[in-house]
């Protein structure tokens, strides 16, 4: 069952520039969906469309199986969100900021100290939000998103401004909420390393198009497929000829000759063959792509 689904969602600015093209997101219930893409790829625009902050132009959006446009109020009652930079009333304290939204959501007042405690802001007292550090503001914004005890949490770059400890705490908090309360989380980021330890599913967006969508395991499988060996030789053309004659899938690139993954014995045999044929071998090194490299490969084909 899907918590959120978009179908052929497209958007263009008033200047005529296409920002999104046929975005088809499928966020499974109880999943942690990482929405990944470089800056300017269209992540925030997608999330703003999903939350109704931008007027939809083409395509459709369904949340909890219902069309968003016709069920806006019912859907938003079950959704918590943080879009881009913190949205807080600077002249009010953390508690007062939350009270404003507690009135609107009509949720129990006990939720306020609970969420403040969750994000580590339980002791800020009467200090005004404008006097908070960026990290504290971000934490308070997350508390605000958690306040109505949402079923779906939409977080746009929530770790901006957090220190490494804060990022780890945030990750653990989101994991716990997903595991214990079954909250579906859609989290965007431009850094895969930041969310790869958190997410179960991934969507990668680049230049307004989704170029990968699937489970983290599917992406890891892609990573396995990209294991390869790079060979540097004195005469790469001669080396290529020998390798291709031997039936190997060699590919000449700027950095050297790229070969599929092989065992240590096979590497030693290949080396012997090249040397005995008079080709100088400078280096043979295995290249193991991490997920970040795959991400970069995907967005820079």
């Amino acid at each position: 069952m899907l918590s959120l689904e978009t179908h052929n969602l497209s958007h263009r600015f008033s200047s005529g520039q296409d920002v999104l093209r046929n975005i088809n997101l499928a966020v499974e219930q109880r999943s942690i969906y990482g929405f990944l893409g470089p800056n300017g790829a269209g992540k925030t625009t997608t999330l703003r469309l999903i939350l109704g902050l931008l007027k939809r132009q083409e395509g459709s959006i369904s949340v909890f199986g219902k069309p968003f446009d016709k069920n806006r109020i019912d859907i938003l009652r079950r959704v918590g969100s943080l879009i881009e930079s913190p949205s807080l009333y600077g002249h009010l304290s953390a508690k007062e900021n939350l009270t404003i939204f507690q009135k609107i959501y009509q949720c129990p007042a006990a939720n306020i100290p609970h969420v403040l405690g969750l994000v580590g802001l339980g002791d800020t007292g009467r200090k005004k939000a404008s006097q908070f550090s960026l990290g504290m503001k971000q934490r308070l914004s997350i508390a605000l998103a958690l306040l109505p005890a949402p079923e779906l949490l939409i977080l746009d770059e929530p770790t901006n401004g957090l220190d490494p400890n804060g990022i780890i705490e945030m990750r653990e908090l989101l994991k716990t909420m997903n595991r214990e309360q079954g909250i579906t989380i859609l989290i965007s980021s431009h850094l895969l390393a930041e969310i790869e330890k958190l997410v179960t599913h991934l969507g990668i967006i680049h230049q307004g198009e989704v170029i990968f969508q699937g489970t983290l395991d599917a992406l890891k499988h892609k990573q396995q497929q990209t294991l390869h060996i790079v060979l540097e030789a004195g005469d790469p053309h001669a080396a290529m000829r020998l390798l291709l004659d031997d039936g190997m899938e060699a590919l000449y690139t700027d950095g050297g000759i790229r070969l599929p993954a092989m065992t240590k014995t096979e590497i030693a045999a290949m080396n012997r063959k090249l040397v005995s044929a008079g080709v100088e071998v400078y280096a043979i090194r295995p290249v193991k792509n991490d997920l970040e490299s795959i991400f970069i490969d995907l967005v820079n084909p």
Binding site: L51, R72, I73, R77, V79, S87
Partner: peptide
């Protein structure tokens, strides 16, 4: 201006209020 200055329109417009 309270909403513009504090960048809170987006938060307000994603609450379950018509």
């Amino acid at each position: 201006q309270l909403e513009y200055k504090n960048n809170t329109w987006k938060q307000l417009h994603t609450t379950p209020l018509p």
